[in-house]
């Protein structure tokens, strides 16, 4: 439902405000205002639990999300603690400003959706290697690997730096090895599901 402005009426507040949070990246999203005349700009403010409890319920503007035309903005930088946050958006057209529209309910980053990581498994001669998706400093990876046919003997490796190729194992000639991985975010003490299994074969 997109609000339509009747001329002379106050600029309506943005609607359908939601948070899209995946892998600890948080975006605030809302519906565009359809109003005749000048372009509509939007501004976001946030309020952590600290601001509510200790700083007179104050709100803090997000510089990068002030007077923007887009109807979404990356607020990750300011959702920087595992506490509930309040968020609000308002519209402006020329000198006219709408009411603030507040996100329905508080947002805590502990609820972010953790997606199984992308990985690339390689056999370099007899070396079992894996490359992991780079997701930022908040992420660790649990990598499980085993020799095909010996599923009861699974090995694991915790990877904190996903910038480099990881050497997992020196393989038996001609044998096939399989790998899967999941992410872990210590700040919220949660893990993703495991990725798809990928298998490669060692040189003969």
């Amino acid at each position: 439902l997109v609000p339509l402005l009747v001329s002379g009426a106050l600029l309506p507040a943005p609607q359908n405000i939601t948070i899209l949070s995946t892998n600890m990246k948080h975006f605030l999203v809302w519906s565009p205002l359809t109003v005749p005349g000048e372009a509509v700009k939007y501004s976001i403010e946030f309020q952590g639990e600290y601001e509510r409890d200790y700083a007179n319920d104050s709100w803090i503007p997000i510089g990068e999300c002030t007077d923007i035309s887009a109807t979404q903005c990356d607020i990750t930088e300011d959702i920087s603690a595992t506490v509930p946050y309040n968020l609000r958006v308002r519209a402006a057209q020329g000198t006219e400003v709408s009411r603030w529209a507040t996100l329905n309910g508080l947002f805590n980053r502990v609820t972010t959706s953790l997606i199984p990581p992308m990985l690339t498994v390689m056999a370099d001669g007899y070396h079992l290697l894996v490359e992991l998706e780079h997701l930022g400093p908040a992420f660790e990876f649990l990598v499980l690997y085993w020799r095909k046919g010996q599923e009861n003997q699974v090995y694991e490796k915790v990877v904190r730096d996903s910038n480099t190729t990881v050497h997992l194992e020196t393989m038996e000639a001609g044998a096939e090895y399989c790998v899967k991985a999941q992410t872990y975010v210590e700040a919220i003490n949660r893990s993703s599901n495991f990725s798809q299994v990928q298998c490669v074969k060692a040189a003969d």
């Binding site: 601001e51 200790y54 510089g63 603690a81 506490v83």
Partner: peptide, 21 residues
């Protein structure tokens, strides 16, 4: 220490909310 710039305010908020947590 909140009164300074928006830049400063947001950093203080980051620290303060982590302290609160």
């Amino acid at each position: 220490c909140q009164a300074n710039s928006n830049f400063h305010q947001r950093r203080v908020s980051r620290i303060a909310n982590n302290f609160l947590s």
